[in-house]
């Protein structure tokens, strides 16, 4: 009996430790990002770092302004949302309200498959197909532009928007839709004036999730955006927060390397804000009604 008790106690402790691992990981990652990110910011000055327009990390008098990266990331994400959200939302309407169960269950795996494709594969197809196409269509010297990155990101965030929005649309209480139909609204009117507004918080959560994905993506956009530290223009080559880190990490040293960690910290702060917004949104919606 005693041995059994000890086993029980030991297993309990083991499970508690396992349970805490997520907290430990998050705290550890946050601590590492802050500790390694702050020194360079302190040396460069927060204002010069965040709002400096020139990044010349390897010059003899180096400049570390990351405003171009921040703006490029924000522009690329906004562009991707602008293209990805309408398509994703309509797709989720199709899956949730229009398609028969049979059609929906054979189309849904296609969306899930899009989510499973590795980002380097998107990047590869991006350089070979999209970049030359953008060059030809818009008559540019090079197709490695912010625009190409926006298209790739729009495709990459599509699956998260579709799946979260579809769940939200499915959770709208049937009686809302029935009431609207009974009042003489058509099916489409009901979808756009009743179902979508009711599922608003869930759909917004999908959009926020997409923002997080887009702002954190590195490899695919690195392959199609040309990677030059310009202030963002739709048809010029740009560098993002993520790609600024990955393009110089392999050879950076000293203050340059520390500045890369500081960029990581800025990205991390963005992601944490997005995540908190996402969590607040997901707590809303129709959980207990319907």
């Amino acid at each position: 009996m005693k041995a059994r008790n000890i086993t029980e106690q030991v297993m309990h402790v083991i499970f508690v430790v396992c349970g805490m691992i997520s907290i430990i990981a998050v705290v550890g990652i946050s601590a590492y990002m802050i500790i390694s990110g702050l020194p360079a910011i302190r040396e460069i000055g927060l204002k010069d770092f965040l709002f400096g327009q020139v990044w010349k990390s390897t010059a003899s008098e180096p400049l570390f302004g990351i405003l171009p990266f921040i703006l490029s990331s924000i522009f690329a994400t906004s562009g991707a949302i602008l293209i990805g959200v309408p398509i994703g939302l309509l797709m989720s309407v199709f899956l949730s309200k229009i398609a028969s169960t049979k059609v929906a269950s054979s189309v849904r795996p296609a969306v899930e498959l899009l989510a499973g494709i590795p980002s380097v594969v998107y990047g590869l197809v991006g350089i070979i197909v999209l970049v030359p196409a953008v060059m030809d269509v818009f008559n540019l010297k090079s197709g490695s532009t912010l625009f190409s990155a926006i298209i790739v990101l729009a495709i990459m965030i599509l699956p998260s928007i579709v799946s979260v929005s579809e769940n939200a649309l499915n959770a709208v209480p049937k009686k809302f839709e029935e009431a609207s139909l009974a009042l003489g609204a058509t099916k489409i009117e009901t979808i756009f004036k009743v179902s979508i507004p009711s599922a608003k918080s869930g759909i917004t959560a999908g959009v926020v999730l997409g923002i997080g994905r887009a702002i954190g993506e590195a490899m695919a956009v690195m392959m199609v955006a040309g990677n030059v530290a310009n202030m963002p223009k739709l048809f010029s080559s740009v560098r993002f927060l993520t790609t600024a880190i990955s393009s110089e990490m392999s050879y950076a040293s000293g203050l340059q390397k520390q500045a890369l960690f500081s960029i990581g910290l800025v990205l991390f702060v963005f992601i944490m804000i997005i995540n908190i917004v996402l969590n607040t949104l997901l707590k809303g919606g129709y959980k207990d009604e319907g």
Partner: peptide
């Protein structure tokens, strides 16, 4: 915390 881990981009994990 677990959801936060899902949201952290892989480049941060790399760093």
């Amino acid at each position: 915390s677990t959801e936060t881990l899902t949201a952290i981009p892989s480049i941060i994990y790399g760093l």
